[in-house]
Design a protein around this nucleic acid. Structure first.
Lengths: 253, 253
DNA sequence: AAGTGGTCTAGACCACCCC
DNA sequence: GGGTGGTCTAGACCACTTA
């Protein structure tokens, strides 16, 4: 094994991919110890700093874990194949699960921002806002209602797009927007008549309401989404990290 | 300004703290550009690699952002004071919000692990498991029911602790357990009779169900929690990151 | 004492932005 | 072309674990 082909990919990303694929292919199994850093450096023909950048990334992804005087270990358990906190579009989630995503567009138009909408997006009230409201379906079963609001100037021509078939995230990427992070709040509420009708539920049944503010890499708000999932048809996954408790390893392995 | 006192703290952490404090004190204001890396290196008397490790950390924390040919900028907006995905105990959350947390203990005993419980924790069925079930209250209002299961060998003597007043997280820390991450699933469900009674709700009202598997820094499962929040009395916060979309900066600043 | 991860350095070259 | 961030290197020393 060896990297450094003539990819434009940074070396440390190639190293990440290589280690990931060795785990996927079973060469490295959960719980196994990796070769020492200095040895891996030689095998991959990269410097130790670069290797460590790759290893650090893999720890963030929950793929590896380190123990000071002991070595690097492949993470064990179910968390292994799970996605970390990635911001995934509905279409991407569907693809990953092997299902077909589709949409029914309820609303796709530009209207002035209300006071609340303006405040969330840090823009002036009345600013033209593109409203996109869709019922999201998996294999034709209604899963959620998604209402997204984007400053119209960021997405010219979006009222002409047919979002029943096109992916919003793809169109955003084409428009040059770079999503970085979605700050989200999650709560459980009762389905009102409107939601119940579109999700084919009884009024009062639980729905999972997720409100997101998506920002770009300069922390500028790009858009807000309110997604209401049918309680018995969807489940969110995330993880919480314990902020640095100065981990001083005691047992394990 | 200069660091490198005789702290045992790593230099890059000292750099993080210093920059953080300069922002807090208003020397660096949101939107401002930082001095070039090479200049900062001289001022702080550290190498560029070390400085960049600090800057990278500050980006993760949402404090700074970088633009390739332009420089480093202090992040703008409200997201600045928000906490990231920290794994916080109920008591800590309460304290942060200025409320008083308390508990009513429904169950505190050791019992053998069922098949399901054993699988979640990667232990043998029948292994003694400490079960702690509590109603969690804020200012004496019932907010949630929390059922936590911990292998009994990890927490000797816990059946003697009075968890109506003592914090579970504090006791876990005293027992030498180091929580690293909680993998969580979240869904909306209807309150059953048991939950409804203890949370003073009507049966069928929405509850937010969060199931967590908490692991230590070697990815060993420590315990599982199932927390059922009254839908109208609690709201979760988290964020999702867009995994590397090869950010190619276009606009901004 | 040997093995292994954690931190740190000085210097190099490339890619991008702006004049 | 000059300024700035992004990647990469080779080598050093320290801290923790294990024996």
């Amino acid at each position: 094994m060896s990297i450094r082909s003539d990819y434009p990919e940074p070396l440390w990303i190639q190293a990440v991919n290589l280690i990931n694929s060795e785990i996927a292919s079973g060469v490295l199994k959960p719980g196994m110890r990796l070769p020492p850093e200095r040895e891996l450096c030689q095998q991959l023909n990269i410097s130790r700093v670069t290797l460590r950048k790759a290893l650090t990334k893999l720890v963030e992804d929950g793929v590896l874990s380190a123990s000071h005087g002991r070595g690097w270990y492949v993470a064990t358990g179910a968390a292994n194949k799970e996605w970390p906190n990635s911001l995934e579009s509905f279409s991407e989630t569907a693809e990953r699960m092997g299902l077909t995503a589709s949409s029914e567009v309820l609303r796709s138009e530009v209207a002035p921002a209300s006071l609340d909408e303006a405040e969330e997006l840090s823009i002036a009230p009345g600013t033209p806002l593109f409203h996109l409201e869709r019922v999201r379906l998996l294999n034709n079963v209604p899963i959620a209602i998604d209402l997204t609001r984007i400053p119209a100037e960021l997405v010219p021509g979006f009222t002409e797009v047919n979002f029943a078939t096109d992916s919003l995230y793809e169109k955003l990427a084409e428009a040059g927007l770079e999503l970085l992070r979605a700050d989200s709040t999650i709560e459980a509420r009762e389905a009102d008549e409107y939601v119940a009708k579109h999700l084919v539920l009884e009024v009062g049944k639980p729905v999972l309401v997720m409100k997101q503010l998506v920002v770009d890499n300069t922390d500028k708000p790009l858009f807000t989404s309110t997604i209401q999932y049918s309680g018995d048809r969807y489940r969110l996954r995330t993880f919480f990290s314990r902020s640095n408790a100065l981990s001083r390893t005691r047992r394990g392995h």
